[in-house]
């Protein structure tokens, strides 16, 4: 999207004012409202859909498969991203993919033991992400959708014994009982820097004028890696004062828990 010079300078002046005045009047720490649906795909182990007020929409499916982890040491979590209208090898998709892969490897609570079934077998989780429409960087939206999907994912309950190295048997599952996977995936927050101000969850217009942006990963009450800077537009990309990073991380630390609670209760 191209904005006129007058629009950009109006936005920039508003956002850099003290306190910042966002075009939709949000507070610096306020996110846009979202709508969440979960568990609507019976053929997946978990699913979620998130729609943001501007029409951005992301659908996540979680499917599980039993694999013999003694045979190969393949990753137990595989992410696949599809953005409507983008090629799978487009820079946008590839950047996001690499980010998501890093995000899923960050921090505890996400180790392989959670997916291990028996001495021999594990669940492998396939997370498929479909972004149907997005007006600005969808990283945050994707992480929220991923969280909701994993949070409601259920897997069949194991009824055979855990120790199956000696006996050659395939894991057996209960016909009806399901267990919650209880895998908490990290949340990703997008923080835009405009002048000396920081704003969370920038919309399309705000993205056009921000000087810089930071992606912050958060899990379990703490900020984790990866933390990255990214440019959301071509025209304004200035460096930023490192003290702003401190302030930004603090802003996320203060508000991430509220987002988590809101997502969990949904």
């Amino acid at each position: 999207m191209t904005l006129s010079i007058a629009e950009k300078s109006y936005l920039y002046d508003s956002l850099t004012a003290s306190p910042s005045i966002r075009p939709d009047g949000r507070k610096p720490h306020q996110f846009r409202p979202i709508e969440v649906s979960t568990d609507f795909l019976p053929s997946s182990n978990g699913s979620s859909r998130i729609i943001s007020g501007d029409g951005s929409e992301c659908i996540v499916s979680v499917k599980a498969k039993v694999i013999d982890h003694t045979l190969s040491d393949e990753e137990l979590i595989q992410v696949d991203l599809d953005i409507a209208g983008e090629r799978t090898d487009s820079p946008q998709v590839e950047t996001l993919m690499s980010l998501l892969n890093k995000v899923l490897k960050s921090g505890p609570g996400f180790e392989h033991s959670r997916l291990q079934l028996t001495e021999r077998y594990s669940f492998k989780i396939f997370i498929d992400i479909l972004v149907i429409s997005s007006n600005c960087n969808p990283a945050s939206l994707i992480s929220f959708a991923m969280f909701s999907a994993l949070n409601t994912t259920t897997l069949p309950k194991l009824i055979s014994s855990f120790d199956d190295l000696k006996v050659e048997e395939l894991p057996m599952f209960d016909d009806y009982d399901l267990v919650n996977l209880k895998l908490k995936s990290p949340l990703v927050f997008l923080l835009a820097i405009v002048g000396n101000n920081l704003i969370v969850d920038p919309d399309a217009n705000e993205s056009e004028v921000c000087d810089n942006a930071i992606i912050v990963t958060w899990l379990d009450g703490k900020i984790r890696s990866p933390i990255r800077t990214l440019t959301l537009n071509n025209s304004y990309s200035k460096g930023f004062d490192p003290t702003l990073l401190q302030k930004g991380l603090k802003l996320i630390e203060e508000n991430a828990a509220a987002v988590l609670t809101a997502l969990e209760s949904s």
């Binding site: 795909l41 053929s43 997946s44 499916s61 499917k63 498969k65 696949d80 599809d82 409507a84 799978t88 396939f126 498929d128 479909l130």
Partner: peptide
């Protein structure tokens, strides 16, 4: 766009 998860068994290829 036929999503990879659209069938009961996830398809290995796009």
């Amino acid at each position: 766009n036929i999503t990879r998860f659209s069938k009961f068994e996830r398809s290995a290829i796009s």
